[in-house]
Design a protein around this nucleic acid. Structure first.
Lengths: 174, 174
DNA sequence: GCAACTGATTGCAAAATGCAATTGGTCAGG
DNA sequence: CCTGACCAATTGCATTTTGCAATCAGTTGC
């Protein structure tokens, strides 16, 4: 654990945690993509993280208390990474970040539909999402019923992809 | 302006904007500290930014549309930096980030009182803060009256500093 | 056995960072 | 006019971090 900080300011300390180009990407893929294995994170990330960087960040996030690692019973050297409450409580920040990015940055429609749905769902949806994640990663008994928030977001994503594919068929070569 | 992005994901694009150790620190000092000049930002930051990094980040933030630069009429080569709406709308994110850091990271009491007050004030306080900033940086007519949010936060900070100094006098060598 | 897959590690070139010194220009006081 | 303080940067250089490909040893299914 690092003990030498630039300052005790909360924003600075937060930046020391994920003020880099990869840590939040990994957490995003775990939270929104449901990724839990090294290989899933390595091959699944659209941004193309390198394996040494992934290994380093996973280690760092564990040291920071954002992740825990456990053996996969089905596979001796397969590891399962779990989010801690510290990481799960980032959901509102990720929701705001996505909403801000959607307004101000050149996002693609497919990849921003999740952010849009999460923004429209507001705090109730974020709480349901955090409850889902606690259930999935911490074994907490789930209070809510119905489809998981991740499934809802995924369905929205697939609807956009399907619509765009259909549009491309009917209006080729725009 | 950069046109090559790793992906169109809003979170990724947001990280490409301030996924580094300094950009958000500069915006924090401008938003919460009211800093508008190069020298204020250089000497005022507790974290001790280097002048070349500051110059580089100011340029980058301008290219990204987060800041604008104007000549200071009182001083020919003194420049005044202003926040754009794009930067002002980060206030809720900074508030969440501060709140998260306050819970999970080893923050100092003096430097986290602002985050605490901003968290307790909630969205109404954030909106007042953004209104203040629009008035200050964009010249928008201010709708709200009373002390600025920055002044309120600053007063809270000074109260903590004064209390701690008093405690140190009455209970020396803890 | 053996190929495929697991979570990593290594080596190396390229880029980013931190730090101190310096630049060209402006300002107020004498 | 000088002069020294101040202004927003820029330069040079050593250190650190990053990106990328190749590689590692152990495990699994066949």
């Amino acid at each position: 654990m690092h003990t030498d900080h630039r300052s005790g300011c909360p924003i600075n300390l937060s930046l020391e945690v994920f003020g880099d180009r990869w840590s939040l990407i990994i957490l995003r893929d775990m939270i929104f993509g449901g990724k839990r294995h090294f290989r899933e994170l390595l091959n699944g990330s659209i941004e193309g993280i390198a394996s040494n960087i992934l290994a380093d960040r996973l280690k760092r996030l564990m040291e920071l208390g954002m992740l825990t690692k456990a053996d996969d019973p089905s596979h001796k050297q397969k590891a399962i990474y779990s989010l801690t409450e510290m990481a799960i409580s980032l959901v509102p920040i990720l929701a705001h970040l996505g909403a801000w990015g959607r307004v101000w940055l050149p996002v693609s429609e497919e990849l921003s539909i999740r952010a849009e749905l999460l923004e429209k769902g507001g705090p109730p949806m974020w709480n349901k999402f955090m409850d889902d994640l606690r259930h999935e990663h911490l074994g907490t008994p789930s209070l809510a019923s119905g489809p998981t928030v991740r499934a809802v977001l995924q369905a929205g994503y697939e609807a956009v992809v399907a619509r765009k594919a259909s549009e491309a068929r009917h209006e080729p070569a725009v």
